[in-house]
Design a protein around this nucleic acid. Structure first.
Lengths: 294, 294
DNA sequence: TATTAACCATCGGAGAAACCGATATGTCGT
DNA sequence: ACGACATATCGGTTTCTCCGATGGTTAATA
C-alpha cells in the first residue's frame, strides 16, 4: 500500500509551519487528522520523518532527505491540476499567430511577455507572413489570429478589427544605388529602375501602377536583403530598416513615408477563444504596449 | 476534491495498454474499477481524456496534453518511494570515502560507476588523505571507510582488511636534479640531497632512518609538484608519476621500486552499513576491477 | 506550586471512496 | 446470429479519511 498525496501535503505543511497543529490550521483540517496522516505516511515509508521533541518537532535525517522529493511530487501534482484547469476553462492548448513583418518587434514583445505569465500552459507559435499568405494561414485554421498591414480582401469570411497602431513604410535603396545619388529624385525616376516587390506564395495580389521591371520576394526580410545588395528599390517598413539595415537610403518622394493601417483578422465562423481574444485585446489597447520608437 | 494518484496510474496504464481492460489486467484490478477511476478523474479534471471509440479508445487533445504531466507526477511519486525504500532498508544517505593518492584512479573508477547505478539515492563523497590524516577522518566519523597504504597504527580502534592490490612506489627526482645525472646512484648518495617527505596534518608519523634535510607536504600530489620543481627526491606512487609527471626520473637503487600493501579501514565500533560494505567488497574482489596498468 | 496553554497521540464513529462482482450494451469478425 | 472483446453502470462490502473527544507531556505563568 502506497502513501497518498494528502499525506505528502501534510508532511510538507508540518515542516513549513513547524508544527502539526499549525499545519492543520493552515490546511483547514483537524490536528488529529494530520497526526494520523503523518503517522500513516511514516508507516508506509517504514521511516521516522519527525523527531517528536516535546514542544517542537524537527526533521529526521531521512525526513530532510525526503522533503525535497515530496515537494517535487506535490509540484507535479499541482502542475497537472493547473494545466487541467486551464484546458477545462476553454483556454486553448496552443495559439498560433501570424505576424506581418511590418509589426515592430518591440511592440509585440510586451504582449508576448504578459502572455507567457498569464497563460503558462498554452503553447505559442509565431508565424510570419504577408497579405494573402497570412490570410491563407488564418483561413485554413493553421493560425487563429493574424496581424497584417493593408486592407483585408477576404470579404465576409474574416472578422477584422483595425488596430490603433500604424506602420510607417518608405522607399529605400542601397547607398550605392543610382537613385541614392540624384537629389532630389522625382517619382518619374522610379520606373527606370528595378522594383523589389512583395509577392506572396498564394499570388493573388493585384498589380499596382508600377510599369517597370520587378523582382519579387514573399517576405519583407528577403526584400530587405535584396535591397541591401543593390538590386533595386523597395517599399520597406521603417523599423525593419532601422534595425537590420540602417545603411539603406530612403527616397524623399512626395507622399512618402506612408502610414499603413494595421488590422487583426480571424475567422468569422470561429470565434476567438480566451487566449486569442486576450491577445487581440493587447493589440487593441496600445496603452499597455510600448510605443514604437522612431 | 482532487484526483488521486491511483487515478493517474489508471490513466497512463490505459494509454500504454491501449484499453482499459488490458490496463486492469496489468494492474491486477477489475475493469470496472479502472473504468470508474478514469471516469472520476475526468470529472475531477472537468475534462474528457479519452475518445471512447467503439472498440479502441484514443486520447483527446486534452488527454495528450496531460499525459506527460501525469507521467511526471507518477515518476515523482515513484522516486520518493524508491528513495524512502533505500533509506528504510538501512542504506546510508551519504557515504564518505577517504582515498590515498597511492590508489590508481583507474582502479577506483569502475567501483564508483557501479556504485552510482546500484545506489542511486546515496550521495558519495570522496576525500583524499594519507596515513594519519586518513585515520583521523575515519576516527572522527567524518568518513566511513578509508583506503590507505602502509600499516595501520590505530590498534584495536579500527577494523582493517588487507586488499589484494598493491601500490608500487619508487624514488623520483626531476630530470635536472644532480641525482638524475650520476649512474649508478648508490643509496649512500641520498642523505646528501634534500628529501621531500609526506607529513600529515595530524603529524604523528614516526621518523624513518633518513638523516638528511627534509621538506614536507601532506599529499602526494603536492610532493609530486615539489619534485617536478627539482626541490629534492621523493617516494611517489608510480601511477601518479606516469599520469601527471612522466618526465620524472626513477632512481635505480637496490630494493626499489617497492610494493606497498593497501588496507581498508573503518571504525570497529561502528559496523559498515550496506553501501559502505558493498564498496569494501568491490575492493576486496579485484576480479571486477580493471587491473592497474603498468 | 498550581494553572494555563500549547503541542502531540489515540480512539470510536460517521461519511466517503475504492474495489469487486454481476450485468447491460455496443462493436468487430466469423 | 454468435462469440470475443470492449466499456459503462449498479448494488454491496471493505477500506480509508476525517472529525470530535480525550489524555499525556512540556513550557511559561500566576
Amino acid at each position: 500500500m502506497s502513501f497518498s498525496q494528502d499525506a505528502l501535503l501534510a508532511f510538507v505543511a508540518a515542516v513549513d509551519n513547524g508544527s502539526i497543529s499549525a499545519a492543520a490550521r493552515q490546511l483547514g483540517k483537524r490536528q488529529s487528522t494530520l497526526s494520523e496522516s503523518i503517522a500513516n505516511l511514516e508507516i508506509d515509508l517504514a521511516l521516522t520523518l519527525f523527531e517528536r521533541g516535546s514542544r517542537q518537532l524537527s526533521l529526521t535525517a531521512a525526513g530532510q532527505r525526503l522533503l525535497p522529493l515530496a515537494r517535487q511530487a506535490l509540484a507535479a501534482h499541482d502542475s497537472l491540476q493547473l494545466q487541467a484547469a486551464a484546458l477545462a476553462s476553454g483556454v486553448e492548448a496552443r495559439l498560433t499567430l501570424v505576424l506581418s513583418d511590418t509589426f515592430h518587434t518591440g511592440s509585440v514583445e510586451p504582449a508576448l511577455k504578459a502572455f507567457a505569465s498569464l497563460y503558462p500552459y498554452t503553447e505559442l507559435e509565431c508565424l510570419v507572413g504577408e497579405q494573402d499568405d497570412l490570410l491563407a494561414l488564418v483561413r485554413s485554421g493553421r493560425a487563429q489570429l493574424g496581424l497584417m498591414s493593408g486592407d483585408v480582401q477576404g470579404g465576409s469570411e474574416f472578422a477584422v478589427r483595425e488596430l490603433p497602431q500604424q506602420a510607417r513604410t518608405s522607399l529605400y535603396v542601397a547607398p550605392d544605388h543610382p537613385l541614392a545619388q540624384q537629389r532630389p529624385a522625382g517619382a518619374w525616376a522610379l520606373p527606370a529602375h528595378r522594383q523589389l516587390r512583395l509577392q506572396t506564395f498564394t499570388n493573388t495580389l493585384p498589380p499596382d501602377g508600377h510599369t517597370g521591371s520587378c523582382w519579387y520576394a514573399p517576405s519583407y526580410l528577403l526584400l530587405l536583403e535584396m535591397t541591401q545588395l543593390g538590386f533595386g528599390w523597395a517599399e520597406l517598413p521603417d523599423w525593419l530598416v532601422a534595425r537590420y539595415a540602417p545603411e539603406l537610403v530612403p527616397l524623399a518622394l512626395p507622399g512618402w513615408p506612408q502610414q499603413r493601417s494595421l488590422h487583426a483578422v480571424w475567422q468569422r465562423a470561429q470565434p476567438l477563444r480566451p487566449a486569442a481574444a486576450w491577445m487581440l485585446q493587447q493589440f487593441l489597447q496600445p496603452a499597455a504596449l510600448d510605443p514604437t520608437p522612431g
